[in-house]
Write a protein that binds this DNA or RNA. Structure first.
Length: 275
DNA sequence: ATGGCTTACAAAGTAAGA
């Protein structure tokens, strides 16, 4: 007789906007929420500049890095052993926007993709704005990759990160006023929908918070008072593959983190999986 | 507000973010 052992896995994704500047806030998050895995974006340092020690001290011995100088960069920090790690250059550049890690959970494998999708610059005309064209091409490359990966239907996969796109009407404070603002333009929203469909990804936030309710994970630094103006966008996402349907037990956006001292402009997004 | 601020950096101004 064998009883299948289940694992509870807590994952947090956070665009930290400089890990060297805000490692103290990361420690605060780890102590308070005790995730198994923390996915960071915009670490803004090279791998040898990453403050490993502070994570090791808290029991996070396993760190996968894709950092570059000054900008971008992602890191996945875990207290579960990382069985494999892989960087894919979806945009064709080594610009620190992705790292995949794999975990052995009993007889099952979990794959976790940590993304920092290009922001896309200012001008929403991709024919003149190269940065926006790059963002759209990056999303297309993700779509092509995950369409192929669909052949393993039982695979446990999670895609997290700063996708720099607020897909739905109530993922921004005013869909009308942001229709020509990069992060919420129709073409990006379309690309994100195609990416989601390509792997039948579940956007778990909207399983827990109805699509009719405003929900944000980012608030501009420029607001006089971010909380009272509350002009946010939901740019940070946690998506799960079909094999994880029904296995997501809890979801939270840690909005209070935006009010901490010297905050990131993004807040952590959390999910609990029962696998 | 055509972003009002914040970050990194061979800096005292520029590039980038979204």
């Amino acid at each position: 007789m064998s009883r299948k052992r289940t694992h509870k896995i807590r994952i947090i994704t956070w665009n930290i906007n400089s890990v060297r500047l805000r490692v103290g806030l990361a420690v605060k998050i780890l102590k308070k929420y005790q995730p198994n895995i923390l996915c960071l974006q915009e670490i803004k340092c090279q791998n040898d500049e990453f403050p490993q020690k502070q994570f090791h001290k808290l029991g996070y011995q396993h760190i996968a890095l894709n950092g570059i100088k000054a900008y971008h960069g992602v890191a996945t920090i875990s207290n579960l052993p990382i069985a494999n790690e892989r960087i894919i250059e979806f945009g064709g550049l080594a610009d620190g926007r992705h790292i995949e890690t794999e975990y052995k959970l009993g007889t099952q494998d979990l794959s976790l993709h940590n993304f920092y999708v290009p922001a896309g610059g200012d001008d929403p005309d991709w024919t003149v704005n190269e940065k926006f064209a790059y963002k759209l091409a990056f999303l297309d490359a993700m779509t092509a990759y995950f369409k192929k990966a669909r052949n393993k239907k039982t695979a446990l996969r999670v895609l997290v990160g700063d996708l720099n796109t607020a897909p739905f009407e109530h993922d921004v404070w005013s869909s009308k006023q942001l229709q020509n603002v990069i992060s919420h333009t129709p073409i990006e929203r379309e690309k994100l929908a195609k990416l989601q469909a390509a792997h039948k990804w579940d956007d778990i936030a909207r399983d827990f918070v109805p699509p009719s309710e405003k929900l944000y994970s980012w608030w501009s630094y420029r607001a006089r008072d971010w909380a009272s103006s509350d002009r946010g966008r939901r740019l940070d996402h946690i998506w799960t593959s079909p094999a994880l349907n029904g296995k997501v037990k809890h979801f939270d956006i840690i909005r209070t983190a935006r009010g901490w001292k010297q905050p990131s402009d993004h807040v952590p997004v959390l999910a609990d999986l029962q696998i």
